[in-house]
Design a protein around this nucleic acid. Structure first.
Lengths: 213, 213
DNA sequence: AATTAATAACTGACCGGTCATTTATTTACA
DNA sequence: TGTAAATAAATGACCGGTCAGTTATTAATT
């Protein structure tokens, strides 16, 4: 036998919820809600299944906690000063897109996005949380930025919200590509490089010699 | 009683597979693979659960059939002459994006995409089918188009694949927005309008007075 | 009557959630 | 300070419901 001090488990009341949601994020991101097994979440959290239910009421409850927890840092990440700066529109974009690429690389934005997309019918409330707490803020910020640019004569006319799609769409596609297609043989996408190139493309145009007056 | 001639069911060997995949597309799109119930697919196809198993081996088999069936028309729709034309790059883009918007509005591209994204870990083969039969073709086509444009001096330099992301990203974001965020209160997105505006934006640049030499 | 499409009752595996029990840690008191 | 009683954390066997898939039977068609 090993020495007398070999406890089967430890009391870690404070650490458990974090362990569990971290493990759950992994499992939900891999399997989706319905296919994720509580037993596996427990296993990865280094805990028994019963313990899960000491800290969370139901599986849905765990799912909610995971999304909520993953949402907060995204909001914080977005605040980051960049947009308060009174720089020219183009310069702000050149700061913002690479920053987004960074965030998407560091935080599990992709995993959460996939989860929200995949389970949006079954958990509309979560899609709503994501929309209300993250997406709508981001869109509002971008449209404000674009409108200011338009007023200054820096940015071409057009619906600011659709312009925001032009800005962010390629980045989101890159994120989803990474999550979905890369694991099955899709060519890798370098988000940072995509951000850089897309900046110049969307700011200056894909066409060298503009086809318009 | 109704008249003596009121058969409880009819033999429709040829029509069944189509009925079933059509019903299954609905259910899978609404629920995702794991949460979709074979019984409900059967009900919507106007058939008993047992009948499902006369035409398909397993649930996965049904899923595969649905994706394949929903995928093929998309490929065909893409081929449609547009790209063979020897028009200037900008003109082809102005034909292609609205056409994509049309297809995405008419066919359940969004639903299938959501399905593929949501179930990609559990069914990598499906993501692979989607990648190999749809996405890689589309990318190949676009990169070829872009490369030709670059050789002709019409299109700015840069990785053609990333340029393709710049072109298609906003459209894909629009499609996903419709599927995921609109049902929970997200503002509507007019895909056709998005296509039109994004064309000019991405071709000519968001910035009125290009910030580069 | 023979054939076979279709049904509906059935089965068995699986999994979310519970709870009686075990074990670590803390506290009371000598 | 040492020790035993009290408490709180954690476990894992188990239960009940659900559902993919099977099969014995029925009914339409030829």
């Amino acid at each position: 036998m090993t020495g007398s001090t070999a406890p089967k488990w430890r009391r870690r009341k404070e650490a458990r919820p974090g362990d569990i949601t971290a493990a759950a994020l992994q499992v939900f991101a891999e399997k989706g809600f319905a296919t994720a097994r509580m037993e596996e979440i427990a296993r990865r959290a280094g805990v028994s299944k019963g313990t899960l239910y000491l800290y969370f009421e139901t599986k849905e409850d765990v799912f909610r906690a995971v999304v909520q927890e993953a949402v907060v840092p995204n909001i914080e990440a977005l605040r980051g000063g960049v947009l308060a700066l009174d720089l020219p529109f183009a310069d702000i974009v050149r700061l913002f897109l690479p920053r987004f690429a960074q965030i998407a690389t560091d935080l599990p934005v992709g995993a959460v996005a996939k989860m929200v997309i995949g389970e949006s019918r079954n958990f509309p409330e979560l899609a709503k949380v994501w929309h209300d707490h993250v997406v709508s803020h981001a869109i509002a910020m971008l449209t404000a930025l674009i409108e200011r640019g338009q007023q200054r004569g820096e940015v071409r006319s057009g619906d600011p919200r659709l312009h925001a799609f032009s800005l962010m769409g390629p980045m989101m596609l890159g994120v989803i590509w990474r999550e979905t297609l890369m694991p099955v043989g899709g060519a890798p996408v370098d988000l940072a490089e995509l951000a850089r190139q897309h900046c110049e493309t969307v700011l200056n145009g894909l066409v060298v010699d503009g086809g318009k007056p």
